[in-house]
Amino acid sequence: MSRVACVQFAARRRESPDEFAARVGELVAHAAGLGADMVVFPAYTGLAYLAAACPGANLFLGPGFGAAVARVFASSQDGSPQTDFLRLFSGLAARHHVYIAPGTIPMPTAGGVRNVAHLLSPEGDLIGTQAQTHLSRDERASGFLRGDDLKVFRTSLGLVGFAICEDAWYPEVMRILALQGAEIVLAPVAVPAPYSEWHQVRGMWQDVQQNQVFGVEACLVGLAGGVEFEGRSTIYATCEMTEGDTGVLTRARRTDAEDVIVADLSFAAIRGTRERFGIFNHFNEDLYRQWFPHIYREYVAAQETASPGMPAHPPVGEVSPAARAALDLAQKLRRRDAARRGDAR
């Protein structure tokens, strides 16, 4: 049994990075006090951090957002804002001995920004990063570029994957993660107000049902990047595993206020569900092989011919700059920790 916590973080105007650090510190401490082994923050937690760290940077979602983020990163003196952001959460992870997924942070890359999630170990090490792979029209207009890779990460709780924002509404994402063995899917999301329960049902709720995994959806509330967000953070399991067959283990009390929720994930129970009624036992591979992936390619080509309004997505290299940066950072953090341990001795 493992306990996960979901932080429904309220973004608001903060005067300094210290003020931001103080609040997330309280939230992680609260989650750890509830016995959590893993703490998940919503999307754009890193945007709220950048706004606090660089007041006057004009980090407003919409046209010009990508350039503003690039300016923030270019003008930072020591290291990058990403490093500072991760150092903060890495310290909290190590102090409370919990895994932390500190939501997402927009990171500049060639030609735009990526919305990147990180996973930190209870020792404070970076386990891995995941860039958002599907974008809404508004996100594209803000200069976001998508990643083209979905990874799962080994933790003591089980294999973990990410479905970031819009990704939770493309069933391909959860399927690819589950087929790679993911047992817990973390969904840091930020959905503009007003809140719609049915929109949430057609996202993570059904993704979890269709793949028989656990889902941890952390929703941003409050004001970030000039946009008002609402949501109701929820920890999901299959209907069979939940009281009243709702598919919900626990959820935040409100859609517009900060909250921390925790739930216990029973892996024995989810394996039991799969044994009794294994959705994955009855895939029709013959059918999928006939159409995947070329049917997507043909559809997209036909769309581009029919309505050439939207620019095509730029191609992505094998290792994205975000992933490269993350790898470098991981090395740096590890070296720092090693040095610290040396000092202690």
Binding site: H134, R146, D148, D149, I176, P293, R297, H313, P315, V316
Partner: peptide, 10 residues
């Protein structure tokens, strides 16, 4: 749709 992503896995 993210075709390069699906091409990798599906």
């Amino acid at each position: 749709f993210n075709v390069p992503l699906y091409e990798k896995y599906l």
